[in-house]
Amino acid sequence: MTDRRHTAETSRVLMVLGVCGALVFVLPLVALVVRAPWRSAGELATSGPIRSALWLSIVTSLVATVVSIVLGVPLAWVLARSRLPGRRLLRTICTLSMVLPPVVAGVALFLAVGRRGLIGEPLDRWFGITLPFTTPAVVLAQVFVAMPFLVLTVDAALEQLDRRFEDAARTLGGSEWFVFRHVTLPAIRPAVLTGAVLTWARALGEFGATITFAGSLPGVTRTMPLETYLALETDLDRAVLLSLLLVAISLTVLYALRGRWVGAALRGGGA
């Protein structure tokens, strides 16, 4: 009896704390919904600036996701499989932008590929290419902060993968690329998809590095988060509506995909 009562009390404590934990996420969401200017919502949502910001956000975040997959999967492979010296340090560096203050990320990008940057200066001088204040700069900022989600997920999956399958494929006559393409990649597919979804969600919400590095020009670099931030200066209603729109998109996509890829891969990864 004592034992049972003890268990019940413990679980009650966990329950209360757990619900408090959930409130941290639920409450702001509820507040957004309650505070939203529903009456003028339709009119605001279809207004020119919001439409162009939304379109820009969707396009850039999707491009950033594709770029992250194309570069991030090989990067994860290098981190998990190569015998590159300093591999551990490299892994840490590649995930640094997840914890870096976004503005620092923006400044770092300036110093690298800005007009006076390490690579940016020769680019500008020899090819007349300047990145800051352009749409590619938005994508670059998003890739910079979001790709680690993909790299980490795929890296973990590669570490866990049973390499004997790749060995089997080699004895069957597969070249390294053929083996990667037809054995490794299918095996880590769930992790790639999970990483891609997380990357996309992070890219969609990216703000600090974008506003610092890419600036804020309607239709060119002003994505939804930037539009929201600016709206906060003058028009709280619009800011709330923009936030809600952004939340709704992310929530729909994450929830819809959770059951399939994200959930499966996370469960598989945890097992």
Binding site: G215, L217, L226
Partner: peptide
């Protein structure tokens, strides 16, 4: 302009 910054210091 190339950008409309959200504050003048930027």
């Amino acid at each position: 302009p190339a950008s409309y910054e959200s504050n003048v210091r930027a």
